[in-house]
Amino acid sequence: MRLLSSYLIIAMCFVTSLANAARQPFELAGNSVPAGEQRSFLASVTNTEMVVPMTVFHGKKDGPVLTLSAGTHGDEFPAITALQRLRHEIDLAALKGTLILVHAANLPALHQYGLSALHPGDKKNLNREFPGSENGTATEQLAYFLTQEIVARSDYLADLHSGSAYQQLWPHIYAPFVGDEKLDARTLEWAKASGMQHIVLYGDRPRDPENSISYPNTAMTRGKPGLTLEIGDLGNNQEEDILAYLDALRRLIAGIDMLPSELPVSEGQVIYKQLIDVETPSMGFFEPHCEIGELVEAGALLGTVRDYFGEPIADLRAPKRGVVLMLRHTPPVNQGMGLITLGIE
């Protein structure tokens, strides 16, 4: 019996060794990463001078390909720092599958003078140009590269955002839906696995993969769960937001069984089925009367728009009962601008 057991153990080890040896290198943007290794590199965007910093962890064990992507906008920083830290804590020996970290998807926007979400070359919003164009403007070419190299190679995608330099934001996560019941259910369950307390069901993006508009929706229209996380605001890079991001990212990785986790199960998550933007009817100077994260009743005064002499010209009130998820921080506003976003349960 002991001899038979020894043969069985040797056979199992041999099979495991063969499986690891058979796992092919992971190819991404002209870079090859062997199984069991980690590589960080600057990926060149085809036919441009742009590069995208990436790290690939290619585990020896089979599993999904997950991309965590930060820096789509140039004034959103906590996720970038969180990915830098996450890079140093991934256990390759335990990893099932392949983890891609896109450290900053839009370097030109990140490094322009002054805080701006937009690419300086064409003043376009990368998160509105997917799936992009190989021969388009700079932003369209970048979107095309991310579609072809990242979305196409991924099984799951999480796009990591923050409130911009002029926006206060309550941490939340978007779980898109595209009318595919199984995919929508998988996406929502993955969003819940993040541990984030506020989950927004979001079905307003096009269902056409050739006009997918946003990064995660490009994944969804190709049959892959795609989430948007929002943590941090005002163009800041606060430690509490970085730590909140790290917690959510660890949970997302564990939530699809890529790494083990002993993190406690989250409770009390709130799901919002509608977002309402409260717009100003007038140009002027905005004075908020609500706070981020506040639950407001229908009809509550949310803010006042004043003229340049300080006289009130418009009161903004809540059309429904909801939670203030986003709030305009800087006072100058233009007619029709959304100043407050309410999440409706």
Rank of each mutant, 00 (worst) to 15 (best):
G59P: 10
K60D: 04
K60N: 13
K60E: 07
K61V: 03
K61F: 13
G63R: 13
V65S: 03
V65H: 04
L66W: 00
T67Q: 14
L68H: 09
S69L: 12
G71N: 13
G71Q: 09
T72L: 14
G74T: 08
D75R: 15
P78V: 05
P78F: 13
I80Y: 05
L83I: 11
Q84L: 13
H88K: 15
E89Y: 08
E89C: 05
D91M: 08
D91W: 11
A94R: 15
G97L: 09
T98S: 10
T98M: 03
T98P: 05
L99I: 03
L99N: 01
A104V: 09
A105M: 14
A105P: 15
P108K: 11
H111F: 14
Q112N: 05
G114R: 03
G114K: 04
L115F: 06
S116G: 08
S116I: 04
H119F: 10
G121A: 10
G121T: 11
D122A: 04
D122K: 15
K123L: 06
K123M: 10
K123V: 00
K123F: 10
N125M: 10
L126S: 07
F130Q: 05
S133I: 04
E134G: 00
E134F: 11
E134N: 11
T137P: 10
T139P: 02
A143H: 13
A143W: 06
A143S: 12
Y144S: 10
Y144Q: 02
